[in-house]
Every structure is written in structure tokens, then in C-alpha cells.
Design a protein around this nucleic acid. Sequence first.
DNA 1: CCACTTTTTGAATGACTGTTCAAGATTTGC
DNA 2: GCAAATCTTGAACAGTCATTCAAAAAGTGG
Lengths: 191, 191
Amino acid sequence: MVRQAIGLFWRQGFSASSMQQVVQATGLNPGSIYLAFGNKEGLFREALDRYAQEGLAMIRRTIESAPSIGEGICRHLEGVIEEATKRNYKSCFLVKTQLELSAQGNELYKLAAAKLDEVEALFRGYLEKEYGRELAQRRAASIMLHLFGIRVYGYRRACAGPARRPSVAAVGLGSVCLPVPFSTPCSRVHN
Amino acid sequence: MVRQAIGLFWRQGFSASSMQQVVQATGLNPGSIYLAFGNKEGLFREALDRYAQEGLAMIRRTIESAPSIGEGICRHLEGVIEEATKRNYKSCFLVKTQLELSAQGNELYKLAAAKLDEVEALFRGYLEKEYGRELAQRRAASIMLHLFGIRVYGYRRACAGPARRPSVAAVGLGSVCLPVPFSTPCSRVHN
DNA sequence: CCACTTTTTGAATGACTGTTCAAGATTTGC
DNA sequence: GCAAATCTTGAACAGTCATTCAAAAAGTGG
């Protein structure tokens, strides 16, 4: 129910998704949706929230199951890169929402931005266990910056059609973007 | 005329901008707009095209007026970073368009992607004057990746309100993201 | 089996969408 | 200074939008 809404909103964005499409995607009737979520924005908020919650949980799982924090963060980045090279890559729901709804202090924009802040804070928290506060903060910011880059760059490549795919491998996304923030904690991916 | 359309579409995106808003922003009548551009998509295409053209011209100017190609690219990146820390930063029209209109092989998405490819090709062309083809290609890809990251990360910060601003400086966007692709060509910004 | 509450239904609503085009204004050619 | 051609105007159009709500269905307690 919220799951299908996530899929639709993630793919098409807020404005381009009509409630009729939501009705079709979820199989629910308009009345039920409005009873449960108030309005389109309420449903979108719920979808965004769920998406962010699951994303944060996945990051935590990845990092905590790794032998070290640096290695865990590396694994997460590698996962994001692998995801970004797949066909029909949808980029990040939070990033897309933020960019779409940035005009006039939109409430949903603020929510997306807050969730992205949570992600950054999560990285910062882990990094503070190994580095000083300031270095942890800078590394977390760097990770976010790289994640955004991967998600947009990978997105472009993924949607450009199969003819373009080989160049992704040729460019070597992994070897180009990973070395930076992890020259120390994760030498494995350093070229 | 197209200028005002750029402003509106850049800020609000394609779906969230109504033709009535376009009419108000440009001061033209619906009929004139439809005579000149066919439809909303035609006007958007024109706006996107003009924006990309001017962006490419600015990059060329920056690089060619610099003492070296590496230094020129650095200056461009620094300019983008500075821009991204300003209030009411609008991110990149091409990136926003690409992320908004990615679903179902949209024509405007393809245009935005093609224009971003042109930007990457421009960097590649310059870099090939100093490096081998493969290295130039990888460096150009890296630059694009960093540019996307800066534009999204900076965007988030810029819109989060004045209370958040100091942390941008504290994180040190410049020193975190710049060192990567330019450790050789532009040692100035390497920390 | 009934009376009562809760949930579900989906056609209807008014506002707004992108787009059109006949009528009016302006320019052009002579 | 007129007639033809071109451009401009903006009210009107059909369609879609998010949203509502009376009526039907399902659930509940005794």
C-alpha cells in the first residue's frame, strides 16, 4: 500500500504522479486513501518516511556487519555504485524529492532534507568512533557528496540506453570516485 | 522571454510550472507562446537548450582564460562551489530536469542527458591535451561526478535556512571535494 | 437476528490544466 | 491611404486534477 506509493512517487516524483495513478497502483479507492493519509502530501510524506527509514536501517546493517567501520562504509558505497549501474536505476527518492520540491519552503522538501541529514549524521556517528569530531564531520560530508554524485551520474548513465552501458565500466566509476574519502580507512579500493 | 521561462522552469521544474505561470512570468499571451514554441514542451526545450549553451560557453571562457587547463578546470569547480553555498541556490537546471523527467523515455530527459554529455565531452577534450585518452576520460567522468555531488549537496545546505549555513564552511566543501581529481594538475587546492 | 458502528465505495465536484482560434490590432506593399 | 497579410489577444474548451461524501457494505455486541 505505502510500498506501491513509494514505487510510483520515486519513479515519477510528486507533481507528475496523479492520485488516479496512485489509486491504480495501490488498488485502493480514493476515499480510503484520503481517510488514511489526509491528502496526497500526507501519503507522499508517509512514503518518503518509510523509504528513509529502510535506507537508514540498511546502512546500519551493512556497516555493523563489517569487520571495521571504514570497511563497512566502503561496502555501502560499493553497493550504491553497483546499484547505480543497473538498468532502470531510479536514483535516490530523497535526492529526487529534494530537487523537485525545493521552491518555496515546501514541507516535503524539508522532510527530505532532514532525512538526508540523518544519513549524514549516521555516517558521522560511526566515523567519530575512529576519528576526531572535526575529521569525522568532514569525512561524512565527503561521503554524502560522493553519494550524491554517484546517484546522479549513475542515473544518467543507466537511463541513456543499453548502447551507453559499456562506457560506464570503461570509465570505472568505482576506481574514480572511491579513492577519495577512504585513502586511509579503506585502502582496498585505492588505485 | 526565454530568459524568464528559464528562471521559472529552473526553479519549479516542468510539471510544477503551469502555463499560466509562464504567461505571468513572461508577460506574453498564451497564443504568442504557442505560436512561437508549439507547446509547453517546446518552450521548455528552448529554455533548456539556451541554459546549456550559456553554461558551456562559460566553462570554455573560464578554462581558456586560465594559465593552464588544470588551473582552468579548478577555477570552474571553485566557482560552482562558491555558487552552491549562496542562499537560494537553484542547483543545475540540467540535473534537475534529468532527475524529474527520467520516467518513460521522456524527450526532455534525453535532451538534458545529451547536454550533460556535452559538458563531459568538453572537459574530456581539454584534458586530452594534457593526458592520454583513457586518463582524460576517467578524469572527466570524475569531474562530472564531483560537480553533481556539489550541486546536490550544496543545494541541500543552501535551502536549509540561515541557521545551517556556518556548517557549510566548517565542513569545508572546497578542501573535501576538490583534491581528488586534481592532485596532479592543480596542486593549489590539494590539502 | 437485530440495531448500531465502522469501513469501503466510486461517482460527483469545482478548480485548474494545456491548448485553441475567431476577432481585433498592427504591419506591410504599393 | 487603402487592402492584404501578419501578428497579437484572451476568453473559451475539453480534459484532468485533488478531493469529497452520501450511500452501500462489512463488522460488532448482545
